[in-house]
Amino acid sequence: MIKLLKNRQIALSLIILGGLIFMAIFAGFLAPYDYTEKNLQNRLQPPSSHHLFGTDNLGRDILTMVMYGSRASLLVGFVVVSISLAIGVTLGVLAGYYGGWLDEIIMRLTDSFLAFPSMFLALAITAFLGQGMENMMLALVAVEWTVFARVARGSTLDVKTKGYVRASRWIGASNAYVMVKHVLPNIISPVLIMASLGIGNVILAAAGLSFLGLGVQPSTPEWGAMLNAGRTYFTTAPWLMLFPGLFIMITVLAFNYFGDGLRDALDQKMKNIELEGRF
């Protein structure tokens, strides 16, 4: 773990992500104003020393909104990815490990989910279920889990043929034991990489859905919803869209950067294990 931090890419992205998470958790202390506080006299103020990021059409402080908005975005990212990871990895490991008809069914299922463009699928589901945070998350899970299922299945197929998996079966280990103790730890690194890349994607997608008005209520602070609200004022008050957009970008990039770094570091680790076999 400490070795991972030596990787500059990982360290930098972790600092940014740490800052974002800190901001989300302590928004209540950090934010200069209350996000419900409306002040119509102050509406559409450009950035100034009072309102660093300016104010919106209802006179709310955008910095405050952005800070509170990070809560919704990160929450959606983490929750959606955790649930998708749990579902996807479980199904993927089962499919890969048992093979046969189970594999067939699960893989056809992922194929049918993958047949639609992901945004379209999410749109369709939220449109069908109606607007709201939970429904949006549900839609995003429906899109995300297939990624994990595929990765987990592929790695499981690989691990399954390894000697140590067979070796523990031969001393009487049950299939469940082998899957939990041997297969999971050995497939976890590609899954973690996918997860950190996935959080970025989910945040982006959530922002997109909210922008289209299918996500959270416009009154709750959320970056995508803020973009949506700022749309009409784009020419006159660009800061309404600029700052939430900037934060979406930073967050997504940081997660992707983190995922890439993780991949490089873990690849390197695998190489080192192999390298020693070279002698």
């Binding site: 000697g163 070796a167 001393i171 280990a173 041997h182 730890p185 294990i273």
Partner: peptide, 24 residues
């Protein structure tokens, strides 16, 4: 087996690998 690396999980300490039969 002929290849010892065929029995031990590369992500487990060897102690855990030796304990595995007992655990199972």
């Amino acid at each position: 087996p002929q290849n010892p690396a065929d029995v031990v999980d590369p992500r487990w300490t060897v102690e855990r690998s030796v304990a595995e039969p007992f655990v199972i």
